[in-house]
Every structure is written in structure tokens, then in C-alpha cells.
Design a binder for these strands. Sequence first.
DNA 1: CCTGGCACTCCGGCGAGCAGAGTGCCAACG
DNA 2: CGTTGGCACTCTGCTCGCCGGAGTGCCAGG
Lengths: 338, 338
Amino acid sequence: MLSERRLEVLRAIVQDYVGTEEPVGSKALTERHNLQVSPATVRNDMAALEEEGYIAQPHTSAGRVPTDKGYRLFVDRLAGVKPLSSPERRAIQNFLDGAVDLDDVIARTVRLLAQLTRQVAVVQYPSLSRSTVRHVELLALAPARVMLVLITDTGRVEQRMIDCPAPLGETSLADLRARLNSRIVGQRFSEVPRLVADLPEAFGLEERGAVATVLSSLLETLVEETEERLMIGGTANLTRFAQDFPLTIRPVLEALEEQVVLLRLLGEAKDSEMTVRIGHENPHEGLTSTSVVSVGYGSGDEAVAKLGVVGPTRMDYPGTMGAVRAVARYVGQILAEN
Amino acid sequence: MLSERRLEVLRAIVQDYVGTEEPVGSKALTERHNLQVSPATVRNDMAALEEEGYIAQPHTSAGRVPTDKGYRLFVDRLAGVKPLSSPERRAIQNFLDGAVDLDDVIARTVRLLAQLTRQVAVVQYPSLSRSTVRHVELLALAPARVMLVLITDTGRVEQRMIDCPAPLGETSLADLRARLNSRIVGQRFSEVPRLVADLPEAFGLEERGAVATVLSSLLETLVEETEERLMIGGTANLTRFAQDFPLTIRPVLEALEEQVVLLRLLGEAKDSEMTVRIGHENPHEGLTSTSVVSVGYGSGDEAVAKLGVVGPTRMDYPGTMGAVRAVARYVGQILAEN
DNA sequence: CCTGGCACTCCGGCGAGCAGAGTGCCAACG
DNA sequence: CGTTGGCACTCTGCTCGCCGGAGTGCCAGG
């Protein structure tokens, strides 16, 4: 077990290193933080911290740098979440309030997060699987061709073209539309399959096939499109990594283009809790030198999607966490107001 | 006027420089291209080319590097468009054929272009302004709340929420929907305002206001959403610029995040012709060290949107142009098949 | 357990020296 | 007049060695 002071030393190291981006030595530490001990004492503490794997030195006789494990401890026990200043809060609200539709909300959120944290921002579109149905529309584009439009309570719209095995009369279509809507509007996606299972029985034999096709297409949409989309921004901030460039930045850019990777990254975290994944804790190879801070957001009390930022492991965790949390909160509000 | 041989020398310089990324000298030139003259002669030619501003030397007594003007001449008069190999063509077709909807087509196109050219790819969504209306749907979500859904012939769907000044009855709404569709389906967007101008007159006084609101919202959607969206990919390829890094890459990444900039970039080019914009010819500051190759694509004979790539001025122009042209052609086909 | 002192190590910057590549110019040649 | 070989010059980029600074580990004393 580490003594109180050693934890304090670790905190100081993390803070200094995040600020200066340079390995921090014992003397500098005692000067900038008023630990009431001498450099020599700090050196002993550092040796202990290194022994435990919380810090490391790039070369013999250089200063110390926190390891992933060190950051982990810092995040878990030494640092809080830094609340934003009130001008910042106001700026967030103003910026998001101007949004006109869902796409715009997401786009603005990405920009905001990227600006606030000066890192790469990732925002997931509200997931279909947790949404409810606001409306289903069926349009006859041709006798045996139907367009299905699904509108969710988060404002998302999905459409799909359906080729029916047999023509579906205009009145039958209207009938189906009415029945569908009366059954599933306001319901969770997960409930829908159960609710529509017996619908074909209400129709005549010759149309039953077409109805079944439409329904299975609807269910497909629900399942398939649950696969989420996301938006990223602020990649220019990666250039602040500087120096050891091409090597560091390239895999990160590549990872960011793989939506699958990012979705898994966000998906694996707990729903509404803020999650910090540091360096090698990340599942993806290209992201082992980055940290990901993510949190769920939602229109009600429940999270419908995630958002977060990707940055160097050497990041300002309290500030970043504060920004992420605040943005998530405001986006949730906006979505709730709809 | 430059002699034939001097043009040949310029071509050789561009080709070598693009290959090696290093300033090219007279001796190397004579060895690798069989110009039938001595290095000394080439030196004289180079001096002339430099005099005219087609090439430059980074430092006294270093090799020569093409200037923007040099690349311009190269593209205009010295290089053709290199056709793709047939395996490449097949790969394109296979890859694009797997697409399931418009979003997917665009996404695949971006990846394809990025991979093929090893540069940053930009693909614009089919522009609304040149599309025709396939269907308009009006949904009553609440007594005085209507959702407008617009479906275009390119498969794009736009939706919008409308708050009406007065409630609109279900039958009136159906009436409006029917009238709207019968008038504007199959029509160009630009025709729509003219075609719907007298529609409110067909309705009773108490509903006329609501109808007008819906119509003006429709027109707004047509105009406003004409502002196009686009998708980019392959930013990781920027790291191939290497070396002089942070300085070069940062402004490019920033520019790429400004959709407005990119849209203007694509928009300013001629419609269906392939356009190459080299270095300082670019309107945007951050892109002065890059070249942009773009071309329109469309489902019919007419271009509905643009696509292109952004890369270093020192790029393989013939190859890039070939890839861009081929991809545009295939995407057009896919869209036409719908 | 803390502290001051001391010897040691390693990085990073600086300047010299050197090889290589490329140039410009000139005089000669067809 | 265009082309060529020769030659002196210039610049870059690399390596090497040198040093100062910062930081460490260890030890002996409080």
C-alpha cells in the first residue's frame, strides 16, 4: 500500500507531465508543488512508485513519466472531474441550441467536444435499439413496390425499399399502415416483433404474402440498422501530439476510419457511467498510445448512445472528463426538448 | 516556346520527382530516361525551364523540383490519363455492387477512392438541386404538427418537422398529399415552386394558413438542403507526406473538416469535366500545398454531384486522374441502376 | 524516516570535418 | 548554333567528439 505522500507525488508527476510533456524530475517537483520534503525524499518515493509500475523513466537518469497503470490510479483515486466554468457552460448551451435537426445536433456536438477538449471527438447517433417508434409510413411507389419509412422518437429516419411478391391494394396498404401504427407507436423496438406477429392473419390470403414481406422488412430494419452510425471531428488536433509523428498518428487515423472499431470502443463501456480507457486497455492495436473518455447520453434518464473523445494518454483527464460529461448532459437536454 | 526536348525534360523531372520525392539532378535524369543527350545539355535545358518558372531548386546546387506552374503544364500537355488495369476495374465494380443503399454507395466509394489513389477521398452526396422528386409524404404527428418527408430519385430522404398555425384535418392532409404528389413527382426541384404556387387556393379559408406553412417548409427544404453533404476518407494517407509534418498536415486536416471549404472546392469546378487544381490554384489557404482532382458523376448523362481526391501537389497525376474518372463512371452506373 | 552530499549516467545541442551530388561556366567540337 | 566534356564551386546531410545540464542512486549523518 502506497503512503499518502507517495500518492501525492504521483499526482504531481501526472499533472506536471501533462502540462510540460517532458519527463519530470525530483527537484522540479518539490519546487512546483509544495510537498514539504526534500528532493532526495521524493527520489525515494519515486523509486518506490517505479518499483510498483506506476511510473517509468525513458532512459536511465532522465525524469519520470507516468505509465498506463499510473494514469489509471490517477483517474480512479487521485483526480476528480473538473466542472466547467460557467462561461463554458453557457457557450455549450448557446451552441447546441442553434441546432435545427438531429444531424445538426450531432454535428454541433462533435465540433463542440473537439474544441472544448482540443482532441478528437466521437459522437454516436442515437441508437435505434433503445428508441421507440414514433411513426411508420408505407408508400406505394408502384403496384408491388413499397417504401417503408420509420421515424424514431429521437428524430432519426430510416427508409427502405420493398419489393412485394404480389401487389398490395391502396386500401390494404392504408389498413396495414393504420394497424401498424396503432400497435407499435410509442413502443420499444425490442417489443415490435411480438406486437406485429399476428398481423398477417388480419388480411386476405392473396395479400398475406405481401404483408409478411413488409413486416419482415420492418423487423430487419429494426435489427440491422441498430448497427449504429457515428460522426467524428477534430482530427486536426492530433497534430498536437507533434514530434514522434508519423508513427504515432497514422495508426490512430486508421483506427478512426474504422467505424466498427470505434463502435466497439464505445459499445463496450458501461451504459451511463463515464468510462476512461487508458493506453493498452484499449482493445484496438492502433489506439494503444491513446486514451478514450466516453459516456452515454440520452433524452431521458436512459442513455440512447455514447459520445467521447480520443486523445493521447498524456491528457488532462479531469478537464476532459468534465467537458465530456457536460456536453453529454446538454445534448441529452436538447434531445429531450426535441 | 519551349522545344520538344525541354518539355521532355520537364516530364522526366516530374515523373522522377513524384517517384523519389527528392530533387532530381541532371545526371540522374539522363541515366533513367533515355534522352539522347549529355547531362550538360540537360543542365542547359533545366536552366531555361527554371528561367520560365516551371521548375525551381530548393537550394543552390541542389536538384530541381517542379513548381505549381510546372505541374500545370505537365497535366495540361504532357500527361494523359492513365487507364486502370482490368483487375482494378473489376475490383471497383465488385466492391460497389455490394452496396445496399445510398449511404452505403457513398461510403464504399470513399473507401475505394482512398485505397486506389492512396490519398484523401471526398465524395459529395447527390445534390438535391438537380434531382427530381420521387415522393412527398405528410404525416400528422399531432393535430397541428406535421412531418414532411421528401424522397428523391437518387434515393435520398429528407425529413422536417412542421408546426402549423392551425390544425389540419386528416382528410385535408390526405388531399394535400395527393395533390402535391400528382403535381411534383418526377419534376425537377427547380420547377416545384412554380408548380405549387396556387395550391392553397384549393383549400378552405381556415386551413389555407396551415397549407401555406407546409408548402413554404417544403420549398425551404428544397432550397436549404440543396446545400450538400459530403463524406471524406483516407485521411490516414496524409501521413505519407511524411517529414515536414505537423506544419503541412495540420492545415489540411483543418480544411477537410470545414465542409464549406470542400463544397466550394468541388463546386467551383466545371460540371462533368475532370478538374485538376494545383497548389496555389486552390482557393483555400490550408490547401496551397495540395492538389485536388475532381469530376462530376451522375446517374444519367448529367452530373448530380462531384467526387475527387486531395493529395500533395507531388502526386501521380495520370494515375490519380484515371482512378477518379473510373470510379465516377462506375458510381454513375450504380446510381442509374438504382 | 528524512536529508544533504556526491559521483555517475545519459541526453541534447553545437561545431568541425567530410563525402556526395549538383550546379554554372567555359572552351572546344561538329 | 547547339552540344559536349571538364572543372571549380557550393551546398546539404552525416558523423564524430565534446560539453553542459538535469537527473539519478546511494550513502552517511541527523
